[in-house]
Design a protein around this nucleic acid. Structure first.
Length: 602
DNA sequence: GCCGTTTTCGGCCCGACTGTTTTCAGTCG
């Protein structure tokens, strides 16, 4: 009862604000608000550890699949059970969910104009310097800042000089592009080019890309290039001549940073072979994973930095590890965590229980259960897609073209679908057991919750993926209930791209993922991890939640062309970040085994 | 602000580079 009243009240508050949709606050929205609060506090010069506490709370909020808003409404005290959330942040979550805003944030925003925070996006301009510019010169916008630089007024401030003005002017132009995160798949292309180029430098003994790229994060903010060499000058000179380098940001003895033409920053570190493992560990991160690692080391009277692990005794430092990553972890009694797991989520607890999962690999994948053909919006014919899948070593595929509601994409009505399925029967006859083509469909879940094709048609399919394409702006209750309905439908096998998000382009639609996963578990249905680099939907956090509930994940390319089949590896990477093993992923199994899993429920 | 088999108070990871400084604060990862 309380929940209903509160939610209705919240909906009224939110709908009274133009442009806002009816919604229970998502975790990412709550985290955004708290991050803004942290920005403003930082700007005010608040205690650095207090800021860090807020940052770590917002990270925890983004990293859980539990709906913070729901917990705040129903069991607010349970919020502090989440690591990183204490009494104060818990109270703020409750206030935010109940009132739709935070009193403290409103007060701060009255003192500091929001436009001032834009200055923090300029590389090299942090909270202290930005605050000095705002407080001493009264500058509140980037345009005023540009004018002040050009009029040489910034250099009059203590701690600023002509170079600072140049840095700011350059930074204003970059603020838009810099800091934008690119898809992992795009970063990967850049990495391959850099690898090829750096292979031509004889001074390079060993080379590895670290950072969020190595952790397989869905988006990458910059590249961290680690090189073993005895001659850092030669390596840096060579690196600086990479044709796409637009600007050198910094260059010292061991570290150099450049910006490429598209705005991507690449940091180069040159180390000796003795330090390679420590440096690789250190620069792979994440920051939060490293903080935990160093705290553990400290308790053992050890110190970890990018040069090695050192034992502290009688004011002397003795090297105990550094050459390989394995040495660094093993000296602390820890396993070598796969980079994808180094996010300070559960990996240290898993290690303590000796339960680190053996993550799924691309070679474990046996089939692809979501792809399109020229029958709807694909570029490849049925035969071409099947041929390409065979050449990629798969054992089976499902052809899942769109259903009739997608008329713009020439979606299939029952007659055309049945025609396609009889073609598939013929093709299977020709294949004679060497390969299996499944009769599938990507069937729309209509706005009213009905399936887009009649039951008697769906009943004849081997495999049905249900998806939401229309009515994505419906309320959380409506969308959730549509998906729950599909999961309860006897002929639906899996939910495709379950949140509809397009990374950097479109937010996920409002959906109660906890309820969805619970229903999938009850009905024995599968959830898709769509491998397209812009989707990667489910995300890593939801994959981990599905695993907890025993809901199998099916990694699918949703290929619209032959080349699209190669996207499988991006999905596998995301699955690894979710901690999935081969047995957690349905399409590492044979079709007979998958059929058994979904067939029992019909 | 968060956290706790050394702690409910006193810690909180660590180093490189830059610009503005005559020894260091700010920023970044």
């Amino acid at each position: 009862m309380i929940r209903r009243v509160t939610r209705r009240w919240l909906e009224e508050v939110l709908t009274s604000v133009p442009g806002k949709r009816i919604a229970v606050l998502s975790n990412s929205r709550i985290a955004d608000v708290l991050d803004q609060l942290a920005d403003l506090l930082e700007f005010q010069g608040a205690n650095a550890f207090r800021i860090r506490a807020y940052r770590s709370a917002t990270r925890a909020i983004r990293n859980t699949s539990t709906s913070i808003a729901q917990v705040a409404q129903q069991h607010p005290k349970n919020l502090t059970h989440i690591d990183g959330i204490g009494k104060s942040v818990a109270e703020k979550c409750v206030e935010l969910v109940q009132r739709g805003s935070l009193d403290q944030l409103d007060q701060l925003l009255r003192q500091i104009p929001k436009s001032v925070l834009a200055m923090l996006r300029i590389p090299g301009l942090g909270p202290k310097k930005a605050a000095a510019i705002y407080q001493q010169l009264g500058i509140t916008t980037l345009e005023q800042l540009r004018e002040a630089c050009e009029a040489e007024r910034i250099r009059t401030l203590k701690g600023f000089g002509p170079k600072s003005e140049q840095m700011i002017l350059k930074g204003i132009g970059l603020a838009e592009r810099a800091g934008k995160r690119i898809y992992w798949a795009v970063a990967d292309q850049q990495v391959q080019q850099l690898r090829d180029y750096m292979a031509g430098c004889h001074a390079v003994q060993q080379l590895e890309f670290a950072g969020s790229y190595r952790r397989g994060k869905e988006t990458v903010g910059d590249l961290d290039l680690l090189v073993v060499s005895e001659d850092s000058t030669r390596v840096m000179d060579y690196f600086g001549r990479f044709p796409d380098v637009a600007d050198t940001i910094a260059r010292g003895e061991t570290k150099m940073s450049v910006r490429l033409g598209d705005g991507l920053q690449v940091d180069l570190r040159v180390v000796t072979s003795r330090s390679f493992g420590a440096a690789l560990q250190y620069f792979t991160g994440s920051k939060e994973h490293n903080v935990i690692l160093r705290s553990l080391a400290k308790k053992e009277n050890l110190k970890i930095n990018e040069y090695g692990v050192f034992r502290l005794e009688d004011q002397t430092e003795q090297v105990v590890a550094g050459q390989t990553e394995a040495d660094v972890y093993n000296v602390l009694g820890l396993p070598v965590f796969p980079p994808e797991l180094r996010e300070a989520r559960q990996e240290f607890q898993w290690a303590a229980r000796n339960e680190l999962p053996e993550l799924v690999t691309a070679s474990d994948i046996r089939g692809d259960l979501h792809m399109h053909t020229t029958a709807t919006d694909g570029n490849g014919t049925l035969e071409e897609m099947v041929d390409a899948a065979r050449k990629r070593g798969l054992d089976f595929v499902a052809i899942t073209d769109h259903s009739q509601r997608l008329s713009m994409l020439d979606g299939l009505d029952p007659k055309r679908l049945l025609d396609q399925w009889s073609q598939i029967d013929q093709l299977n006859d020709q294949l004679d057991g060497d390969f299996l083509v499944l009769k599938g469909i990507e069937c729309d879940i209509l706005e009213n919750g009905d399936m887009d094709l009649p039951d008697e048609v769906l009943a004849q399919a081997d495999w049905v993926v249900a998806s939401v394409h229309f009515g994505q702006r419906q309320s959380r209750e409506q969308i959730t209930s549509r998906i729950l309905g599909a999961l309860a439908h006897p002929f639906v096998s899996a939910i495709a791209h379950p949140t509809g998000r397009l990374i950097n382009r479109r937010d996920a639609y409002e959906v109660d993922m906890e309820a969805v996963l619970q229903a999938a578990s009850e009905h024995g249905k599968l959830m898709e991890l769509n491998a397209h680099p812009a989707r990667l939907d489910l995300n890593d956090v939801h994959c981990a939640a599905a695993k907890e509930l025993g809901v199998p994940i099916v990694i699918s390319t949703d290929a619209h062309s032959v080349a699209g089949l190669d996207m499988m590896r991006y999905g596998v990477l995301q699955a690894r970040r979710g901690g999935l093993t081969a047995s957690d992923v349905a399409n590492t199994h044979t079709w007979a085994e998958i059929q058994q899993a979904i067939g029992g429920k019909r």
